[in-house]
Write a protein that binds this DNA or RNA. Structure first.
Length: 416
RNA sequence: GUGGGUGUAGCUCAGUUGGUUAGAGCGUCAGGUUGUGGCCCUGAAGGUCGUGGGUUCGAGACCCAUCAUCCACCCCA
C-alpha cells in the first residue's frame, strides 16, 4: 500500500458518520438549552499560545505538539486543546466588552503527538464549553451540568463525576512546601517510576497507580488542609449546587491540574467502560488564564470532552439507535429510454424534497432491486417504457410489497 | 521513550509436529428462462500469507530485522 494514514489518525467512514452527526446534534441541542453559542476558532495558532513559559508543564506541551514553521517564518502549532484559542478570541475580539458574560461552545479536532492507545489518538475530537466573566461558583456547577447532560442525552449513565478544588497558586505553594517536607525523607522508598515526580510535580504522586506509592502517601498533607475561607466557601457552593441539581459527584482530593492558571473548581468525568484512559471529560475554573494571555483579569470556567471516548461508551451501552434519513425512492430503469425517463423522475422527486437514487452502473433490473433493498429504500419506482406515454408509473412499497400505478405528483404525496 | 499481543481474500477468521495447486463464513458480481428485492440454490472474481533477509531438499508456519496495528506503562495541557 503506497499511502496510509498517519499513526494515530482515523478515517471516519460513511458508515460511521451517522453516529458522529447524532452525537453532534445532541451536543448542539444541550448547548442551546444552556444558552451557549457556538464559536469556531482556527485549528492552528502561534505556538506561544499553547506554550507560553518555561514551566515543566510547558515542556510536556511542547514535546507533544504538532508544530511547523510557515512560509513567513512563524512557529505554528496544531491546537492541542480548545481553551487557549477561545480565550485568545475572547481577548482579541473584545468579547468581554460586548457582554458581561460570554458563554460559548466548540466542537472540533485537536492534535497531540502521543502514543496511541484505547481512547487516545493523535488527531482526536473534543467538544467543550467556556463561560468567561463570572466568578460565581454556581456557573462552575452549570459547566459540570452541561457535560453531564450531554452524556445523559447520549444514553450514558455509567460515569462518575470526580470533584476537587485546586484552590489558588498561593494555597498550592504552601501545600507543596509541606508536601515536600513529608515526601522528601521517604524519597528512596518510592517506586522508581514515581520517584522523579517528587521534584518535578509532587501533586502527581497522588495520581499514582502503584499501591506502594499510595501507602507511602498515607498521612501526607492534603491540599484541602490549606484552603482559605474563600476557597472553601466557593467549593461548598459548587457541591451544594450540584446536589440541588441532582448531579451525584465524589470528592477526589487526588484530582490535580498541571498548569498554574487553574484555580478552584476542577472536575473530571470518568467511565469504567473505557480503558486506561478513562476520562470522558474534564474541566474547571481558570481565573488566571485570560490575564496571562494579555486580557483584562476575567474569571472563567469551562470543560472539554472527548468525542471518540463518548462514542466508545455509547457503543458499549448499546446506544447506537441513531437513524440516518432513509432513501425515499429508488428508481429502476434498464433501456436507454427508461434511463432517460428515470432521470426526469429523479429530478422532479428531488425537487420536491425526496431522497432519491438510481442506477448508474448499467445493472440488471434484479441487481437494481437488490440495490434498492440494500439501501433500505422505502419505495421503488419502475420507469417502464410502456408507462412513459401515460405518465403513470408503478410504485412499490418495499416494506409492505404493495404496488400501485400513479402519476408523479401522487407519488410525491404518497411518500410524504 | 518502555513492555506485551496481533498482522493470511474487501471484512471476521481457520490453517495440524515445516511437506504438493492456501481455506471457510460474510460481502461483492453473475445466473436460477417469460420486466419485481429480502430467504434459498448454483457459479465466479478476489490472496506478492505486512515487508526484507536467513535456516531448510522444501517456509503461511522456524530465526533475525523492519513496518503497521492493538493494549498497557510513561505522560496527560
Amino acid at each position: 500500500m503506497k499511502y496510509q494514514r498517519i499513526k494515530g489518525t482515523i478515517d471516519i467512514l460513511p458508515s460511521e458518520t451517522g453516529k458522529w452527526i447524532y452525537l453532534e446534534e445532541i451536543i448542539r441541542n444541550v448547548m442551546a438549552r444552556f444558552n451557549y453559542k457556538e464559536i469556531r476558532v482556527p485549528i492552528f495558532e502561534p505556538i506561544e499560545l499553547f506554550a507560553r513559559d518555561a514551566s515543566e508543564s510547558t515542556y510536556v506541551v511542547n514535546k507533544e505538539m504538532y508544530t511547523f514553521t510557515d512560509m513567513g517564518g512563524r512557529s505554528v502549532a496544531l491546537r492541542p486543546e480548545g481553551t487557549p484559542s477561545v480565550v485568545r478570541a475572547f481577548i482579541e475580539e473584545s468579547l468581554g466588552n460586548k457582554a458581561p458574560l460570554t458563554k460559548v461552545f466548540y466542537i472540533g479536532p485537536m492534535f497531540r503527538h502521543e502514543k496511541p492507545q484505547k481512547g487516545r489518538q493523535r488527531q482526536f475530537h473534543q467538544f467543550g464549553a467556556e463561560a468567561l466573566g463570572s466568578a460565581d461558583p454556581r456557573i462552575d456547577a452549570e459547566i459540570i451540568a452541561i457535560s453531564v447532560q450531554v452524556l445523559k442525552d447520549c444514553g450514558i449513565d455509567q460515569f462518575e463525576v470526580a470533584l476537587n478544588s485546586v484552590a489558588t497558586p498561593s494555597v498550592r505553594a504552601k501545600h507543596r512546601e509541606k508536601l515536600l517536607e513529608f515526601v522528601r525523607p521517604l524519597a528512596s522508598q518510592f517506586p522508581e517510576v514515581d520517584r522523579e515526580k517528587i521534584d518535578r510535580n509532587p501533586l502527581r504522586l497522588f495520581d499514582s497507580k502503584l499501591e506502594l506509592t499510595r501507602q507511602l502517601l498515607q498521612g501526607a498533607p492534603l491540599l484541602e488542609q490549606f484552603y482559605d475561607d474563600e476557597v472553601r466557601r466557593d467549593f461548598d457552593i459548587v457541591k451544594e449546587t450540584l446536589t440541588r441539581l441532582g448531579i451525584p459527584y465524589a470528592s477526589d482530593p487526588r484530582l490535580v491540574r498541571g498548569l498554574d492558571y487553574y484555580t478552584r473548581t476542577a472536575f473530571e468525568i470518568r467511565s469504567s467502560l473505557l480503558g486506561a484512559q478513562d476520562s470522558l471529560s474534564g474541566g474547571g475554573r481558570y481565573d488566571l488564564l485570560v490575564e496571562e494571555l494579555g486580557g483584562d483579569p476575567t474569571p472563567a470556567v469551562g470543560f472539554a470532552a472527548g468525542m471518540e471516548r463518548t462514542l466508545i461508551v455509547m457503543e458499549a451501552v448499546g446506544k447506537s439507535d441513531y437513524s440516518e434519513k432513509p432513501l425515499d425512492i429508488f428508481i429502476i430503469a434498464e433501456s436507454a429510454a427508461e434511463r432517460t425517463q428515470a432521470l426526469l423522475l429523479t429530478k422532479q422527486l428531488r425537487d420536491s424534497g425526496k431522497t432519491v437514487d438510481l442506477d448508474y452502473l448499467g445493472r440488471s433490473q434484479k441487481a437494481q432491486m437488490k440495490e434498492a433493498s440494500r439501501q433500505n429504500a422505502r419505495f421503488v419506482l419502475f420507469a417502464f417504457a410502456d408507462d412513459i406515454p401515460g405518465g403513470r408509473f408503478q410504485c412499490k412499497n418495499l416494506s409492505t410489497g404493495e404496488q400501485q400505478k400513479l402519476p408523479i405528483d401522487e407519488i410525491t404525496s404518497l411518500i410524504a
